[in-house]
Design a protein around this nucleic acid. Structure first.
Lengths: 171, 171
DNA sequence: CCTATCATGTAATCCGTTACATGATTAT
DNA sequence: ATAATCATGTAACGGATTACATGATAGG
């Protein structure tokens, strides 16, 4: 009667960030998410309060509660958590991502390009600029994973800018 | 005490496909999704049995049940549904999409590029080829929305192929 | 017939979102 | 003091996924 417990991407975000940070409170995890992976895979704040407890119950994390003050819970990787993270990372994923872009969905469903394109183009330009600025700071940083993610983000933002810009006036 | 009813992207997929098809059963909707928008925004089959009923209860669809045979339910747009669809389509979306790519997440969290890149590159190449073949067939087709979505898909698949290919051997 | 497959639904469950409520710190 | 904000949680809810069960139709 194994409890139906599953590891989701959110689980691995928590595990991965804890591997890097050593240990963290939910609030610290939240800041870590927002300043890094959140650009590519955002997570709700409240989930960073519940997910670590789920993982702790499953034996993947160790939990410590502070005595004074806010009586914060601090989490860190347990051996089982490290193993789960490693196994996940070393297993190629078969599936492909979907665009899941609301504006593209509207376009597909008959929206006028002119209604959407300008705002999307500008928003993607802003995002692209932010990524490029980040890239200037991060160049050469180790480990490379974050850098690669940023590269991917930049490539896709460029693709989006080109796409929406082409719909603003063009044919 | 309005019942907490919300329109999700899935709702608009159903509304949009019904606008185009005139009317459809859940199974027909499922086929329509799989042969079109499903590439960019997939939907679970079972949801195409429940969502139209939700929309019907909300007054956005009309439901008909066949007498003989499978006693299928057939749905078509009600006036309120057409209005909701129109309002959605003519309202620009503020937000940006996220990549939400599991392989990129693994990379970010420290996976070895070599473990992931080959399979991802090949899978994206295959998807790209499928899109390009589709594009040959669809060229010049009206309305343009589907064509534009295909263009966007091709651009992004190219970006992904380039990205993963660059990680297979390169530096 | 009777097998394969096409097709229709329901049930259980759970992750993720939204909203609510409160406690501790810091600066003025 | 006290206002602002930093921080920690819980509760409720619902959409989405997964698994289960069954009925009709077509072809051999």
């Amino acid at each position: 009667m194994a409890s139906p417990f599953s590891l989701t991407p959110v689980s691995f975000v928590v595990l991965g960030l804890l591997e890097r940070a050593g240990e963290a409170t939910p609030y610290e995890l939240w800041n870590l998410v927002n300043s890094s992976i959140g650009n590519f895979w955002s997570i709700q704040r409240s989930q960073l309060y519940t997910e670590p407890d789920r993982l702790t119950d499953a034996g993947l994390l160790d939990r410590d509660r502070e005595e004074g003050g806010l009586r914060r819970k601090r989490y860190k990787l347990a051996d089982a958590g490290r193993a789960a993270l490693d196994e996940w990372r070393t297993t190629p994923s078969a599936g492909l991502p979907e665009l899941r872009d609301v504006s593209l969905l509207k376009l597909f469903m008959g929206a006028e390009p002119g209604v959407l394109a300008g705002a999307q183009r500008d928003a993607h330009r802003a995002k692209l600029a932010a990524y490029e600025e980040q890239a200037v700071q991060d160049v050469g940083e180790e480990p490379r994973g974050r850098w690669h993610a940023l590269e991917a983000g930049i490539a896709h933002e460029r693709a989006w800018v080109r796409f929406w810009a082409g719909l603003t006036d063009g044919p």
